[in-house]
Design a binder for these strands. Sequence first.
DNA 1: ATAAATGTTTAGATTTGCCTAAAAAATTAT
DNA 2: ATAATTTTTTAGGCAAATCTAAACATTTAT
Lengths: 221, 221
Amino acid sequence: MMTTFSEENYLKSIFHLEKAFPSGVGTNVLAEEMETKASSVTDMLKKLSDKNLVEYKKYQGVKLSASGKVSAIEVVRKHRLWELFLVEKLNFGWDEVHDIAEQLEHIKSKKLTYELDKFLGFPTTDPHGDPIPDSEGRFKISKRTLLAEMNRDETCICIGVRDSSAEFLQYLDRNGLGLGTEIKIIDKESFDQSIYVQIEGNEKYISSKIANNLYVKRKNE
Amino acid sequence: MMTTFSEENYLKSIFHLEKAFPSGVGTNVLAEEMETKASSVTDMLKKLSDKNLVEYKKYQGVKLSASGKVSAIEVVRKHRLWELFLVEKLNFGWDEVHDIAEQLEHIKSKKLTYELDKFLGFPTTDPHGDPIPDSEGRFKISKRTLLAEMNRDETCICIGVRDSSAEFLQYLDRNGLGLGTEIKIIDKESFDQSIYVQIEGNEKYISSKIANNLYVKRKNE
DNA sequence: ATAAATGTTTAGATTTGCCTAAAAAATTAT
DNA sequence: ATAATTTTTTAGGCAAATCTAAACATTTAT
C-alpha cells in the first residue's frame, strides 16, 4: 500500500521518538515534533493504525508495527543517502542539506535508492555522523560518547552531532570542528561544566551546551 | 508565492500544449493531458489565474502568463536535468527515467538545481534529445526533421524522439537505435510510407509510425 | 479520595484537489 | 437561422490533512 508524504513523516518521527519513549510515543510529544496539533496527530494515528503501520490504542501512546518500522527506516535511509549525496557530490555544507533531504526522502523508486547508494559507495554514515541503513534496513547503533563525558588529558575524535540544526553546525564550522576533528581535553571547569580543549594546535573554550551536543570516540578505542 | 505539485504539473502541461495550441489551450485537451476531468481543470485554472500564473477567460482556453512560463520552464529544466542525472550517473536506461523525474522535478531548491546542472557539466540536451533550459530559462528550439521526411540515399543522425514512452524507447533499444545513431535511407515505400534503412551495417525495415517519431539531422548539416 | 492539572480525543470547519451530474455557452451541421 | 453537437462551466460532494474548541481520560497533588 502506498504511503503519503505526511504518513511517511509521521512514521519517521515516531521512529526517532521511540528511542526516548520505548513504551509508547505520546500524542503531544509527537505533535511537538511534527509541528502540528495534538488533534491532528490523533486523526493521523487512526489512519496509520488502519493501515497497520502503527500499534495504537487510545490514550496509550503509539509504537511502530513491524511494517511501519520498515517504512520508517526506508525513509531515514533515503534521507541520509540524499544528505550525503548533496555534501559529497554537489558541494553542499552539512548545515544546508536537511531541508532538501526532507523533500528527497519521499521520492519513490527502489532502483533509485539502490543506485544512489551504489553511486556513493554503499556508505554507512551520513554527513552528521548518523548511520545509514542498508537496503535490508540494517544499521549500526554505535554507543556514542558525548564530548561532555570526556576527562582531562584524554584525546578524542568528533564522530557525530546530537543537534543537527544549521545554527549548531555553523557554530562548529566557525570553530574548526567537523567529523574527524581531533580534540584534546586540556581542562574542565566543574562550576559550569565548560571545557578547554586543543583543536589542531589552537586552544579553545567549549561551553557545556556545545559539549553535550557533540559525539566523540576516544582516540585509540 | 509557493506552487503546489499539482499546480506545477498543470503549468508544465500547458507549456507543452501551447506549442500545438498557441491561441489557447482548451479545457478538454488539458484534461486529457492531465488524466483528469474537464471540471477539475476549470477549478484549477481559476486558482492559477488568481495567482497570475495563467491568462484565463471563460470559454477562451488558457495561456501561460510571463511568471507562469518562468515556473513551467523551471519545472521542465529540473525534469530534464534529473533525467540526465539518472542516465549518466545512476545507470538508468532512457526508458526508465520519466516517472522518477516526474517526482524529482518538484523538489524546491535553487541551489540544488544549479549544483546538479554544474555536476552534469551544464548540459544542453536530455537523454531523449530535448533541450534543457539554462538557469535563465533559455534553451534552443532547434528545427527538428522527422526521419519520415528524409529522402532516399540521404544519411542522417538520430537526435531525438517525439514519443518518449517506455514502449517506443525499448523498441529503439532492441533495434540498435539511440541518440547519435547514423541512419542511411536505402529505400522508401510510397504505399505505406515505410522505409528501408541501414543502421551500423545492418539493413532494417522501419514503419511509418516509427519514422514519424524519430527526430534526425542530416549528416553534414 | 477528591480536586486540579495535564494529556488525549471528539466534533465540527476549512482548504486543496478531485469527482459526477446538470446547466450554459460555443461551435457545427442542416 | 435554427437545431444538434460539442465544449466548458457551475453546483454540490468527497477524502486528506489540517485547525479550534470542547469534552473526556489519566495523572498528580493535596
